[in-house]
Design a protein around this nucleic acid. Structure first.
Lengths: 310, 310
DNA sequence: TTCTATTGATGCCCTGGAGGTATGACCGAT
DNA sequence: ATCGGTCATACCTCCAGGGCATCAATAGAA
């Protein structure tokens, strides 16, 4: 089989048409080059160059080999560079699962920043539920999930990148609408729009627990899986709801958001991935998502925990 | 720079996902393979494989390199094969100059046989005059010329591949039309269609000389460069002509061809090429053209020299 | 013509690196 | 705890590629 060295030598001699100069260009002595070319000619049984005493000329076979050698050498160089980049995570493909609600939060910013830094990593996005992400991770259908805390199979790691407080959403005309905060108990007789237990177990359980702690069971008048649907129903005056604070980013009018005076535990957004499938691109994505999460929480800090309002 | 060996090793390990088996496939010992892979990983700074104690897995960079290595190895193999074939003249390009009259003779057969034997040699055909072929050869515009004997520049070799006798062409109603042969002297008062001296010096000179030997100067009523035009004019009754015997192949009706009893010297068809531009394809073409020329003369032997008529 | 300079080929030697063998380290299975 | 399987490490060998000196052939100068 031909060796790369041989291709390079053919290219040098083919371009210089002079063994001495070609050898100099290759940083080897001329006899070595002569021997290598002879060797190729012997290997292939084809004369590549016609050496008359005064000049060197390409044969048809030589011209063919020169051209193709150039092309293969280019490809090889490109390959090495690409492998190097892939090793640093600058090249590749990342399939990301995400829950719909993260669309309004850090996903867009994370994607934008990631694309800026790693323009040659193909990103594939798949909206899927928390449960679906868990199985997709286990089956290697996605590289990483932007999801919520849950019970994941062994071998799947998670990293919390953001904690969101819950807030109360009420219609704009509601008596509470002008308040900045409210105790949960004030909502005990309100009709509630809740998240269904089946598809949104985390939100459902969190909200039921905090109401229980406040001493009542919320009266469900409707359920909806996606946050923006829930807020939409509040906006339509159908009832009140408890939603994560990022719901404010949804640009729905006719809804007021109130802090919850009991400061119930926040809910996390986590990244989840298979430990054994850790790639450089994944590491890079994780770092960026983490950073974006931090910034995101910082910009929303004024509305959180009643503490540092400006 | 990456070496071919390394690509092959990556391919083997990537496909076997097992160092021992991959090494066996490569006919080397396993430690050598481990070292080479490590070396590549060190060279590129990218992990290609994840070696857990029980199994080997590809990383993203490894998968990339596997795929591209396959492709480069394929190309390299193809290259070697093509160079080998080009060396034997089975691959390449041959630009052939030819005079129009050879279209009715051996050119079609030669081309057909050559294409059968060397289907991957591209043939480019250029009809051009004898003089044009001489300069085209000198300037490397054509690889070989199918032409007539002439004064060629030094460095240009010729090989005669066929000798054609001249015959007399007369209109079908001409008193001589039913004869098989005639002495040239019988034509001394006939109107002649001649080849112009400028563009067809060889034919023109040959014909004038044989008539002179027969004791007369032909009376030109018209000149025409191409043989088939000349024969067409004879068919139209404009006069008689002396043409090479291949003119019979032109399928022109209304013309009778007669042997010349004086047996004037025949005219050759030659191949001409630059000695320094001798390629394997050219050699192959030459051999075939020569053979075809021999066969061509054999099939026409019965009409030649008055000898072996059946 | 003879001499010289140029250029590719040949002979001989040396060395780096690829490969081999033996063995270690690690882990899962029994 | 032991064994078997698997990849990594240590150390040695050997050869192909490269360097140096020189030859051979020829074009161009004298």
């Amino acid at each position: 089989m031909l060796e790369i060295r041989q291709l390079r030598y053919v290219q040098a001699v083919g371009e210089e048409l002079h063994f001495g100069r070609a050898a100099a260009r290759l940083h080897i002595a001329q006899p070595a080059l002569s021997r290598q070319i002879q060797r190729i000619e012997q290997q292939t049984g084809a004369a590549l160059f016609v050496r008359t005493q005064r000049k060197v000329e390409l044969t048809a076979a030589g011209a063919l080999m020169l051209e193709r050698s150039r092309s293969i050498l280019r490809e090889l160089e490109q390959l090495e560079q690409d492998v190097r980049r892939a090793g640093k995570g600058e090249l590749g493909r990342l399939t990301i699962g995400f829950i719909h609600s993260s669309t309004y939060g850090l996903l867009p910013r994370t994607l934008q920043r990631f694309r800026d830094l790693y323009p040659d990593v193909e990103l594939e996005l798949r909206e899927m539920s928390i449960a679906d992400q868990a199985t997709a991770l286990a089956r290697d259908h996605i590289d990483v999930g932007l999801t919520r805390p849950a019970r994941y199979a062994p071998g799947i790691e998670t990293l919390s990148i953001m904690e969101e407080d819950f807030v109360v959403a009420v219609p704009a005309y509601h008596p509470l609408a002008s308040s900045a905060s409210t105790p949960l108990a004030r909502l005990s007789n309100e009709p509630f729009i809740l998240f269904p237990r089946a598809s949104s177990p985390l939100f459902n359980a969190s909200i039921l627990r905090m109401c229980e702690t406040a001493g009542f069971t919320p009266q469900a008048i409707q359920t909806a899986t996606q946050v923006h649907t829930v807020v939409g129903l509040v906006s339509a005056g159908m009832g009140v709801a408890i939603v994560p604070v990022t719901a404010k980013n949804m640009q729905v009018s006719g809804v007021a958001f109130l802090r919850i005076q009991e400061n119930p535990p926040p809910v996390s957004v986590v990244l989840a991935w298979r430990t054994s499938r850790e790639t450089p691109s994944l590491r890079a994505f994780r770092a960026i998502a983490f950073k974006v999460g931090e910034e995101f929480m910082a910009t929303q800090a004024r509305t959180r925990r009643g503490g540092d309002v400006c």
